[in-house]
Amino acid sequence: MSRLRASLTPYLLLFPGTLWLAIFFVIPTVVMLSLSLQSGDVVNGYAFTFNWHSYVDGISTYHDQIIRSLVYGLFSTLIQIVIGFPVAYWIAFKGGSRKSVYLFLLLLPFLVSFVLRTISWQFFLSDNGMLLGPLKSMGLVPQDFHILATSAAVIGGLAYNFLPFMILPMYVALERIDPRVLEAAQDLYASKVQTFLRVVLPLSLPGVFAGVLMTFVPATSDYVNASVLGGTSNTMIGNVIQNQFLINQDYPTASALSFTLMALLLVGIFAYARALGTEDVLEVAAR
């Protein structure tokens, strides 16, 4: 009896999560997949036709937005690495007894809704707002200078909104590095820079890897930043999908675009994991 219970335990533990994902992820995904292959319109109803035209039309019409999304996602991720790594490094190695305070501060923005934060950025960046107003009145930037409705605003917003997801995994990886290992490197004639490049950086790569996954994917598929900060000429694929679903009610096209994006991201992630698989990265770094 107890042996039976013991062998059932893993399944019992998995059951709630599996049920949740089955209902709220697997079923909608299957429904969407079927939708993407249907034809018709919202008035006369849709019928399953095994028709790929939604994919072909969607990609040929919106390939600009798809590419833009990937580029924005990429740039915002790079910015987050550059900004986030020093922060994670500082908290991990210089945070001392206040580490948890700094981590809390890092997560503090999450107490405010994602949309609200982005809208406050809109105010902050507006043409005569808190940032540009003073700069313009001091004559440091031309009167017609603007940030809103540019790619820079969208990329900046994405980088800002997802930054904690980049910093946290990098922090976890850096925090796990035994300070004695860094001393050992110095003891073995490595300068501070060499210690960083040969030991700290390679050991933090799994964290960077995780951080990239956790920020690139949501940044690429985001639509809030583009719609609040980006104006009309910087729309991302997320905005298109949202429009097709909620405004045009063209469910097949919206579903087809969703799956296209998903496929691109999956292929991208696997290629990335393959090219930068942590074990191999570490192997290279050891040279």
């Binding site: 035994d178 001393e183 004639y189 490595a190 300068s191 050991l203 570490l282 050891a286």
Partner: peptide, 28 residues
């Protein structure tokens, strides 16, 4: 420490976890 001609064996060994034996030994 990196300019001192002495080496240390650490209590917890402090081996470089991302390097194999050869690379650990060849580091210095």
């Amino acid at each position: 420490p990196n300019k001192r001609d002495i080496n240390m064996v650490f209590q917890s060994y402090a081996l470089f976890p991302h390097m194999n034996v050869w690379d650990n030994v060849a580091f210095g």
